[in-house]
């Protein structure tokens, strides 16, 4: 077994999950300049939506792939709706008014979502039904490649390319990038800011839900507390890559994934979280704008 390539493959898989979540973070942050602490928990909500749908009787008879697609679609719709409701009822009135208020509310929403899911589904882990892809392992040159590895990396890659295309080639995407650069100017140019904020929330929530379903299918388990730490690391990824930058989110996600795999595979797994957050602090010391980001306004 070739450990190095195995570690790289693992890193890319973990990194793909981080990157998908980081994309949502970076889009919302690019527009509203606020950290949405509840974003990671949307992954958890998506995973549970998917899990609940997979338990339904009428869906159980279907073959695995259409079953997953139906559950995935349901999760995307459900999670997006939740994100929209949260945006309209709780977030909108704070955006642009109170940075601290927004962060406090999203933080509390994160915990409230976890507690609600815990009350409904219990504290125990839930298990996705096994699927053929994740149990089949192919040996490629001494590296055990799981069918789901290819699915995760492939799907995540497609979504990332799609997002980059969206940001640079569509009017909505271009408007979002313009908004990220200069809020006031974009408003003056007649860009509908509240629409773009809603769009960013929905896209972010959809990516989160897909991440949740993928994670459930890939690792087989979901739990009420799976989202927060994932969200934090994804945000770290977005900052390391350059917040507000779509390509940066992908790069940051993969960096964190590879870092995590290499610490586990070569250094000391006990320290892996510390290494990641240490890397974040280091990046902020050396290059506060992240790898691909523009300079963050430094003041004082």
């Amino acid at each position: 077994m070739d450990t190095f390539i195995q570690v790289v493959l693992t890193g890319f898989t973990i990194g793909s999950f981080y990157a998908l979540v980081a994309l949502g973070y970076t889009m919302v942050y690019g527009i509203v300049r606020l950290i949405n602490f509840a974003h990671g928990d949307l992954v958890m909500v998506g995973a549970f939506f998917g899990w609940a749908l997979l338990q339904l009787d009428w869906i159980e008879g279907m073959p695995m792939l259409p079953r997953l697609i139906v559950a995935g679609a349901g999760a995307v719709v459900g999670t997006s709706l939740l994100a929209l409701v949260l945006l309209r009822t709780l977030y909108t009135r704070l955006i642009g008014r109170s940075t601290l208020g927004f962060m406090l509310v999203t933080l509390s929403v994160a915990f409230a979502l976890e507690e609600i899911v815990k009350l409904i589904f219990g504290a125990q882990q839930k298990y996705y039904p096994p699927n053929d892809l994740s149990s089949e392992t192919i040996d490629i040159g001494g590296v055990a490649v799981n069918g789901m590895d290819l699915v995760v990396i492939g799907l995540a890659g497609t979504l990332m390319v799609g997002m980059i295309w969206f940001a640079h080639r569509t009017i909505t995407g271009t408007a979002m990038r313009a908004l990220a650069v200069d809020h006031d100017a974009a408003r003056l140019m007649g860009i509908n800011v509240s629409f773009l904020i809603a769009a960013a929330f929905v896209i972010g929530a959809s990516l989160a839900a897909i991440t949740g379903i993928l994670s459930g299918t890939y690792y087989g388990r979901v739990s009420f507390d799976m989202g927060f730490a994932l969200g934090l690391k994804a945000f770290t990824a977005a900052v390391i890559g350059g917040i507000g930058n779509i390509g940066g989110a992908v790069l940051g996600g993969l960096t964190i994934g590879l870092l995590e795999a290499f610490v586990q595979g070569y250094l000391a797994g006990a320290w892996s979280d510390a290494v990641i957050f240490g890397a974040l602090i280091l990046v902020l010391y050396i290059r506060p704008s992240g790898i691909l980001g523009e300079r963050v306004a430094e003041r004082a």
Partner: peptide, 20 residues
């Protein structure tokens, strides 16, 4: 002789290292 970080989900890198 090492640890994993619960919640990380993917321990293949560590398992690979044990084999190595």
């Amino acid at each position: 002789d090492d640890a994993i970080q619960p919640g990380q989900n993917d321990y293949r890198a560590a398992l690979g290292r044990v084999a190595r």
